[in-house]
């Protein structure tokens, strides 16, 4: 069993591959908006792509797995926050609007 703690990376190849994947996902998600305009499941796929892209930056650029638990949690919660809302409003938008209105009216 290797007990040596992982060290911050000095390699450029994983960063390059991550950058390429992020560029491809960006172009792909743009295509999704055009090809599947108005499709019911589009928010789900877009939410998944947003989450994957965010996690890639956290994992490979920030090296979140080496960071303090608080930083890891902050990154995980924030990256999951918007995709969850995308799914909620995508599938339960009407109900959500009613709840928001009743909340604002007290």
């Amino acid at each position: 069993m290797n007990l040596t703690p992982k060290k911050p990376s000095t390699a450029l190849l994983p960063l390059t591959l991550t950058w390429l994947a992020l560029c491809l996902l960006t172009v792909f998600s743009l295509g999704l908006g055009k090809w599947f305009h108005g499709a019911n499941w589009l928010p789900l796929l877009v939410a998944l792509i947003v989450w994957v892209k965010g996690m890639m930056i956290a994992h490979y650029f920030i090296e979140a797995e080496l960071t303090h638990a608080f930083i890891r949690r902050v990154l995980k919660v924030f990256i999951a926050f918007a995709p969850l809302w995308l799914i909620l409003t995508g599938f339960f938008g009407g109900q959500f609007a009613q709840w928001a209105l009743s909340f604002l009216r007290g």
């Binding site: 992020l22 908006g33 877009v46 947003v50 956290a58 918007a82 995308l86």
Partner: peptide, 23 residues
């Protein structure tokens, strides 16, 4: 600085589909 810039990048990656992809 790099951490701040990556965080700002993550925020943009969330904003992008909100306005330019989801129609």
């Amino acid at each position: 600085l790099a951490s701040y810039w990556h965080a700002t990048d993550i925020i943009w990656l969330i904003i992008f589909p909100m306005f330019y992809v989801l129609a």
